[in-house]
Amino acid sequence: MKGQYGHRALLALAAAILIAAPGTVCSQEEVSSAIRRYRDLEVSTGYYEEYEVRPQRQRPFVVLPGVGRGAFPYSPSGARVRIRSRLADSHRGLQFYDVQRCETCHPEQSDDLHTVRANLTCRQCHGGEPIASIDHYYSPMNPIRRHAYVCAKCHEGAGASFASYVIHPPNPADIKALEEFPALFYVFWAMAAIAVGTFLVFLPHTFLWGIRELLARKKETSGEHHE
């Protein structure tokens, strides 16, 4: 009997710890697999092997932007030559790299809020030389650990979702944004349409009203005659 009570006490203690212990903070979450978030939302067995779902970060075929012919075989040599987003040193082999400034080649990456308003330099997030590619397995910028290794340096407690904030967003008005960030593009233009529509109605309305009242005398005096 005694042993049974001890067992229960242990269970109660475990339950108390579970209730009282603080939950995981955002930056403690691990995003070790592309399917993990999908699994959270899955109602069946909730587990899928990598090959069962559409691959996300590790694509067996790599589409080269601009080439447009679709898929190229993903081979180590091919990746080294063409795909800079997976290199240990993303600038490897670039001529005169030592004497360049970041914004010489990446001008669009230096006009966002973090750079302009918070006065961050590139290296404060991207690190010193060699700067690893975003998707290199050991890069701090790799989305599996970016939130904890980069974002959380300032945004204490940043989670993986938080880290999906686009630091270098495209110009939302630009047609390029339609491809890179369609949600931003559509919402921007919807809001702009509401704003422009309101002004298109009410600015001429106000202007005409002003002109009309300048011309039309207030009928105050005639009103008093009616009394």
């Binding site: 955002c26 989670g159 979702s161 686009v166």
Partner: peptide, 11 residues
């Protein structure tokens, strides 16, 4: 960003 995806903040 625990409720909406972080890129929602851009929007």
């Amino acid at each position: 960003s625990r409720i909406i995806p972080g890129w929602g903040l851009n929007v």
